[in-house]
């Protein structure tokens, strides 16, 4: 078995994958994934396209289901049980590659929608919370505009604020900067760095290696559905052990 038990024994795991397999039809997309993410830990997941890294984090909030093995998130095991899935989704926030803001609602309404309807917050409290978080990601002045009227970087920061309004314990990021113009990538990464510094448990799928070096506790390299190498960022980037890791790094760091 792999060496993740050290962290597991501490008893404060946020996410635990145990021998997880997933198939799309007959395509074996995730193979025997075992990974433990501790509370407050920041994990960066990287790998070539088609490696299964997006599928991996989408399994955490059951946007994808797995056929074998177990995934336990915040103490709740993910099965077909809808109540459990909703429980998990309340505590896990997700930021998508193409933002997925609701175009028919203002930014403020995007942020207050879930707190009002899922956490049953009174409207005023929800709006206060949303305003606070929008200020934190520095787009409070856009609160009454519609997503179509914002730039890409602003939309993604709004999406981060929307996820944070549910006060999640874990935040998932699925290639959050891949759809952005280069000059807007920094503002989003800065937001994510600030979030990390406040102690949020984060799992980030990204190609931004500078961010990984600066923020991550561990970097996980996935290729062809299996975890190939896991290490602290310094060791990972400077002394990659597996030859596939070395190949991948040579392709993206040129």
């Amino acid at each position: 078995m792999s060496d993740f038990s050290a962290v597991a024994d501490r008893g404060d795991t946020a996410i635990r994958f145990t021998n997880v397999h997933k198939w799309y039809g007959s395509f074996h997309v995730l193979r025997n994934i075992s990974l433990t993410v501790g509370r407050g830990e920041r994990i960066v997941v990287c790998g070539p396209s088609g490696s299964g890294k997006s599928t991996l984090i989408r399994c955490v909030n059951r946007l994808e289901d797995h056929q074998r093995g177990s995934i336990v998130v915040d103490g709740v095991e993910l099965t077909d049980d809808i109540k459990r899935i909703d429980e998990v989704r309340r505590e896990v926030g997700m930021v998508f590659q193409n933002f997925n803001l609701f175009p028919h609602l203002t930014i403020l309404e995007n942020c207050t929608l879930a707190p009002i309807w899922v956490r049953k917050m009174p409207k005023r409290d929800a709006e206060e919370l949303a305003a606070k978080l929008l200020a934190r990601v520095k787009i409070l002045d856009q609160a009454n505009k519609y997503p179509g009227q914002l730039s890409g970087g602003q939309q993604q920061r709004a999406a981060i604020a929307r996820a944070l309004c549910m006060t999640p314990k874990i935040m998932l990021f699925d290639e959050p900067t891949s759809s952005l113009d280069p000059e807007m990538v920094k503002e989003v990464l800065d937001t994510m760095t600030a979030l990390a510094q406040e102690g949020m448990t984060m799992v980030v799928v990204t190609h931004e290696m500078g961010f990984a070096r600066q923020v991550a506790d561990r970097v996980v390299f996935i290729d062809r559905g299996e975890i190939v190498e896991v290490n602290a960022p310094g060791a990972f980037f400077d002394h990659p052990q597996h030859e596939r890791t070395r190949l991948f790094l040579s392709q993206i760091l040129h």
Binding site: G25, S26, H28, G40, N231, A232, Q241
Partner: peptide, 20 residues
């Protein structure tokens, strides 16, 4: 609370299996 980084390097490939 700090966590010791736990390193891992794959030694053997996972076999491809048919779905259940």
């Amino acid at each position: 609370m700090s966590l010791e980084p736990v390193a891992y390097v794959r030694t053997a490939p996972e076999p491809e299996e048919p779905p259940p």
